[in-house]
Simulated scan of single mutants.
Amino acid sequence: MLNKVPEVTLYFWIIKILCTTVGETAADYMNDTLGFGLDKTSYVMSAALIIALVFQFRARRYVPGIYWLSVVLISVVGTLISDKLADDLGVPLVVTTILFAVLLAITFAVWYASERTLSIHSIVTRRRETFYWLAILFTFALGTSAGDLFDEKLGVGYWPTVGIVAALIALIAVAHLGLRLNAVLAFWAAYILTRPLGASIGDGMSQPAKNGGFGLGTTGTSFIFLAVILALVVFLSLTKVDRTENHAPDPGSGDESDQRYGRHLAESDGLS
């Protein structure tokens, strides 16, 4: 089985942020605009996510359409889990933020203890793929809770939150590129932060002007971003520029698992 996730390129981060925005606005659209309610929306989107993940796990290599559909759906479900705890069950956002942070830390700890790596360049087994998607779910739920806490409870506002989170991601990028911050740590830190970034962008675009938004509504915002995601996924499917088979891992990275993965790719390419 070849690596099941895309190479981390600019396209990856753009689509990831778009997916987090859709996760926020689509959940609100189904819950409020369509009147499904939180419970029915959760059931429908969880069922859709399970179906998408079945296809994702059955695939033998990274398929852009299946992968990014799974990311969109897991973004929505992660948002709904956080909203369910905070809105329906009355769990404080501080508690849900800590809870999801602990669950994510446990996932990473068990993943590393089992596989000796957290690198996404080596998602080549079912077990690693299971850890990967579990971590993705918790990053979305954590990002939703932390973003809501920072944005709403602390009264920072949508667009100031976008600026602050974007600055934190930029600092991580500088630390990685200039100060040699560990690549795996930098990736997951930035990945978590893209959730409140995308959610704040979604709220800022969908909410009415009186609340500091652009007034596009959840319907308009969701369909605009879904259209852009679809266009980018079609582009990636045709060009294959984000396939990890086209990017050799750094032989000096010191990650033995990644080096074995590089040899695995070389052997696979020789067989194809």
Rank of each mutant, 00 (worst) to 15 (best):
T107C: 11
V72M: 14
L85Y: 04
V94D: 10
D88V: 15
F108E: 01
F100D: 04
S70K: 04
G78M: 10
L93W: 08
T97Q: 08
S70W: 00
D87N: 12
I74D: 02
D87V: 15
L99V: 10
L103M: 15
I66T: 12
F100S: 04
T96N: 08
A109Y: 13
A109L: 14
G78K: 07
A86I: 06
T79F: 07
V102I: 15
D87C: 06
I81N: 00
V76D: 01
A105M: 14
V102R: 03
V77P: 01
F57P: 01
I81K: 00
S70C: 14
L89F: 15
R60N: 13
V77T: 11
I66S: 07
I81P: 00
W68Q: 11
L104C: 06
R60M: 12
I74L: 15
L99K: 05
V77M: 08
V76H: 02
V63L: 14
G78T: 02
V91E: 01
V71C: 08
G78A: 14
T97I: 09
V63R: 11
R60F: 05
L89E: 12
P92A: 12
P92Y: 08
V76E: 00
F57D: 03
V95P: 01
V102N: 04
G78Q: 06
T79L: 06
V71A: 10
L103V: 12
R58F: 12
S75D: 05
T79N: 10
W111T: 08
G65W: 12
Q56T: 04
W111I: 06
Q56P: 02
R60I: 10
F57V: 14
Q56Y: 09
D83P: 01
V91Q: 00
Y67K: 00
A105I: 10
L69R: 00
T79C: 11
Q56R: 08
D88L: 15
G90N: 03
Y67S: 00
L93C: 10
W68V: 08
L85T: 01
I74H: 04
Y62H: 10
V71S: 08
V95F: 12
D88W: 03
I66N: 07
G90E: 07
I74T: 13
D83S: 09
L73E: 05
R58D: 07
W111G: 07
I66G: 02
L93F: 06
A101H: 03
T79G: 10
